[in-house]
Structures are given as structure tokens and as C-alpha cells.
């Protein structure tokens, strides 16, 4: 039986090595050398001349934007998302699956389409204004509020789902015991429920933080090209076929991602949560 599982796991392992490990290796080589389409393998030289890019003011600001927005988005998603998850857990509604479906309902439409429509109704003159006569969002298109709103709106469901999974796993007997031993409900929440669900919060944070950090479509559309994330710079570099610069920045992002996964394993030694 064991052998069969091994055979079945092979396709994914092949896929992983061909389409993930080898490209990452290539990315590392490209970012630390002068390799590009007009340089052949034999002329390959270790080169760090393009590292100047890292100190360019636009690169630094883009990194700052990515990290800042990712952090704030994660925090807001945590605060708002946790209580939605908790509400769903407490709800007397029989079919909780339906409630969870509502949470992920926005994901049923394409991300770009959703963001473009959001950009539309956030601008001064838009389709909603011509129907109902006033602006729901005011004229926030192109500002940081618009970007933050779009990010939270897009990624909060990930937080809700992972927190909900963790909350569902908590044995109700523990909560009963806490109440029996004289804790008031609010104290029970802080002393029993929240610590037990913390792993879900960590997983959810990673799932919100990473795509926000590396993303570029949402800030580009909602800020009307005015707020630059590191993903936007990488995109530009690849469009204009400057692979060395693009790969270098992608490697830096990779370091951030590895860092946050290490952080995750620190909280989640048994690997119980989703990741």
C-alpha cells in the first residue's frame, strides 16, 4: 500500500522540481550574474552591478509600500475577520456551510474583473452614480484608502476561513469547563477560545500577508498607477526584458516569504493548521 502512495505522489514531485525548483535556481543565477538573452552561457560572469537598483529611491519606497500595506491589510483582516468567523461558529443556524459560502461568494467572480469594477464605482463619475445619483465611496479612486479597501475586501475571506477552521476544532467541553469553573463569558473567550484559535490566526495572517506583499494588480488598478508596490516594479522589469533586475527583486521577495514561513513554523510546531 505504501508503495502505491509513493507512486501517486510522484507526478506532483516532478511538477514541483521542473516548474518550481529549477526556475528558482535559474532566478538566483540570473540575479547574481550578467546572464541575459544576448549573453551566452560561456560568457557568464558573477556580477552584482545591478544591486544598485536596491538603493534606488523608487525601489525602497515600493518595498515600504508593499510591507506597510501588507501589514495593515493583515491587521484589519484579523480584527474584522476574526469576529465574523466567531459569529459563524456561535450561530444557531443549522447549515454553517451556507454561511461560509456567503463569505467566499466574492471569490466566485474573477479577481481582475472585481477590482476593475471596484475602481469604477470608486471614481468620481461612475455607473452607480448615474443610477442612484450619489457616490457611495466618494471620490477615493487613486488614493491609498482605495487600495487598502480593495486588499482587505479581496483577502479577508482567507482569514475568516482559517480562523473558522481553528475555532471549529475547539472541544466544547473545554468551554463548558471554563464556565463551570466560574469564568465570565468574556474571560472565557480570552483565556480559552482565543489562545486555542491562535494557530488559525497565524495561518490566516500568512495567507493574507503573502499575496498582498507580492501582488501588483490591485494596487495598480485602484491607485490608478500612483502607488507602486514591489510587484509593480518587477512587472515593469520583466515587460522591458530586464531579467536581471526582475529576478533580483523577486529573490528579495522570496526571502521575505521564507522568513514569514519560518515565523509560522515557530507558532505551529505540529503543523496542525492549514499550511
Amino acid at each position: 500500500m505504501n508503495k502505491e502512495f509513493k507512486v501517486l505522489s510522484r507526478p506532483y514531485m516532478v511538477w514541483l522540481s521542473v516548474l518550481v525548483f529549477i526556475p528558482i535556481l535559474a532566478m538566483l543565477v540570473i540575479s547574481f550574474s550578467n546572464l541575459n538573452s544576448s549573453v551566452s552561457m560561456s560568457e557568464l560572469v558573477l556580477s552584482v552591478s545591478h544591486f544598485n537598483l536596491l538603493w534606488e529611491s523608487s525601489t525602497l519606497i515600493a518595498f515600504r509600500n508593499s510591507i506597510l500595506f501588507a501589514t495593515i491589510t493583515t491587521f484589519i483582516s484579523f480584527v474584522l475577520g476574526y469576529f465574523i468567523a466567531y459569529e459563524i461558529k456561535l450561530s444557531k443556524f443549522k447549515n454553517k456551510f451556507i454561511l461560509l459560502t456567503f463569505v467566499i461568494l466574492p471569490m466566485w467572480s474573477n479577481l481582475i474583473l472585481r477590482t476593475e469594477s471596484l475602481a469604477n464605482i470608486m471614481s468620481e463619475n461612475n455607473i452607480l452614480k448615474s443610477i442612484i445619483g450619489f457616490n457611495i465611496f466618494g471620490n477615493i479612486s487613486g488614493t491609498w484608502i482605495a487600495v487598502l479597501f480593495g486588499l482587505v475586501f479581496t483577502y479577508m475571506p482567507f482569514m475568516i476561513l482559517s480562523v473558522y477552521t481553528a475555532l471549529e476544532k475547539i472541544d466544547f467541553a473545554l468551554e463548558e469547563a471554563a464556565l463551570d469553573l466560574g469564568l465570565r463569558p468574556i474571560k472565557k473567550f480570552w483565556k480559552v477560545v482565543f489562545p486555542l484559535s491562535f494557530k488559525g490566526v497565524v495561518t490566516g495572517s500568512i495567507m493574507v500577508f503573502l499575496p498582498t506583499l507580492a501582488g501588483f494588480a490591485i494596487p495598480k488598478i485602484l491607485s490608478r498607477g500612483q502607488i507602486v508596490f514591489i510587484g509593480n516594479i518587477i512587472e515593469q522589469k520583466f515587460i522591458y526584458t530586464n531579467y536581471n533586475h526582475g529576478a533580483l527583486l523577486a529573490v528579495v521577495i522570496l526571502i521575505f516569504i521564507l522568513g514569514s514561513i519560518l515565523l509560522l513554523t515557530k507558532f505551529d510546531k505540529e503543523g496542525e493548521t492549514l499550511l
Partner: peptide, 18 residues
């Protein structure tokens, strides 16, 4: 030439983020 294209790209990014 690619270096000039790159310099222009970086200059524009600096204006946008500046």
C-alpha cells in the same frame, strides 16, 4: 539601448513614488 530604456524606466518610477 537597454541601459537607456532602463534609466528612463527608473526615472519614471522615481517620479511616481516621489
Amino acid at each position: 539601448n537597454p541601459n537607456d530604456v532602463d534609466a528612463i524606466g527608473t526615472m519614471i518610477q522615481n517620479v511616481i513614488t516621489g
